[in-house]
Every structure is written in C-alpha cells, then in structure tokens.
Simulated scan of single mutants.
Amino acid sequence: MKFEKRDIVLIVGLFLFMIGLMPFMAPIYAAIIVTLMYFGIKFYVGKRKQSITREIGEGICLECGAKIVETKCPNCDYAKE
C-alpha cells in the first residue's frame, strides 16, 4: 500500500466524515473508525487492482477486447491463420 496523489482526496473525505461523526460519539472513537475505513478502502482497492492486472495479463486486443496470450489474440490472430 503505497501513498498516491489521490489518497489526499480520500484522507480529506474521511476527515470530513470524522467531523460529522463527532456529535454522535467521542472523537477518539470517530478517529478509530475513520482509520479503519482508510485501511479497509486501501486494502480493497489494492486487491481490486491485483484482480484486474491478473485478468488483463499481457494486454487487451484493440480489435475484439480479448485477453492477449503469448503475444497473440486468441480470437483475431488464430482466425487469420
């Protein structure tokens, strides 16, 4: 989990959420909830990126959108042969 530029937007949003929680609970509990939310979101996004990378593999064919396997498109290149 490395820090990226868009994490600033996440931090600001969660900070505002924490401020919104403060009237209903103690500030320490609001901070704990927001911290858990931050790491939960970061974990979810990281797993989702891994899933997408695993699905794409070497790339995507521009003509049909299929996953490229061994530098060839299974739909387009094998149909030409």
Results as ranks from 00 to 15, higher is better:
Met1Lys: 10
Lys2Thr: 09
Phe3Lys: 11
Phe3Asp: 06
Glu4Thr: 10
Lys5Met: 08
Lys5His: 07
Val9Gln: 10
Val9Tyr: 14
Ile11Val: 10
Ile11Lys: 08
Val12Ser: 06
Val12Asn: 04
Val12Phe: 04
Val12Gln: 08
Val12Lys: 09
Gly13Glu: 12
Leu14Thr: 03
Leu14Glu: 11
Phe15Glu: 00
Leu16Trp: 10
Phe17Cys: 11
Phe17Lys: 11
Phe17Met: 11
Ile19Cys: 00
Gly20Tyr: 15
Gly20Ile: 08
Leu21Glu: 03
Met22Lys: 13
Pro23Asn: 07
Pro23Cys: 11
Phe24Trp: 15
Met25Trp: 05
Met25Cys: 02
Ala26Gly: 13
Ala26Met: 12
Ala26Leu: 13
Ala26Val: 09
Ile28His: 11
Ala30His: 06
Ala31Arg: 02
Ile32Val: 15
Ile32Glu: 12
Ile32Ser: 14
Ile33Pro: 01
Val34Asp: 00
Thr35Lys: 14
Thr35Gln: 12
Leu36Met: 15
Leu36Tyr: 09
Met37Asp: 01
Met37Trp: 10
Tyr38Glu: 03
Tyr38Arg: 01
Phe39Pro: 03
Ile41Leu: 07
Ile41Lys: 00
Lys42Gln: 06
Lys42Ser: 04
Phe43Pro: 02
Phe43Thr: 13
Gly46Trp: 12
Gly46Ile: 03
Gly46Gln: 09
Lys47Phe: 14
Arg48Val: 04
Arg48Glu: 10
Arg48Phe: 11
Lys49Glu: 15
Gln50His: 14
Gln50Trp: 14
Ser51Gly: 09
Ser51Met: 13
Ser51Arg: 15
Ser51Trp: 09
Ile52Val: 14
Ile52Asp: 05
Ile52Cys: 02
Ile52Asn: 07
Arg54Val: 08
Arg54Thr: 11
Glu55Trp: 13
Glu55Met: 15
Glu55Arg: 15
Ile56Thr: 08
Ile56Val: 14
Glu58Pro: 04
Glu58Val: 01
Glu58Cys: 05
Glu58His: 13
Glu58Arg: 05
Gly59Glu: 09
Ile60Asp: 00
Cys61Ser: 02
Cys61Glu: 10
Glu63Ala: 12
Cys64Phe: 10
Cys64Pro: 07
Cys64Trp: 14
Cys64Val: 01
Cys64Ser: 06
Cys64Ile: 03
Cys64Gln: 08
Cys64Asn: 07
Gly65Lys: 15
Gly65Arg: 02
Ala66Asp: 08
Ala66Leu: 01
Ala66Met: 07
Ile68Ala: 01
Ile68Gly: 00
Ile68Arg: 03
Val69Gly: 00
Val69Arg: 07
Glu70Gly: 01
Thr71Lys: 14
Lys72Val: 07
Lys72Cys: 03
Lys72Tyr: 08
Lys72Leu: 07
Cys73Trp: 05
Cys73Ile: 00
Pro74Asn: 07
Pro74Asp: 06
Pro74Trp: 04
Asn75Gly: 00
Cys76Ile: 02
Asp77Gly: 01
Tyr78Lys: 14
Tyr78Trp: 12
Tyr78Glu: 14
Ala79Ser: 07
Lys80Tyr: 05
Glu81Ile: 11
Glu81Met: 12
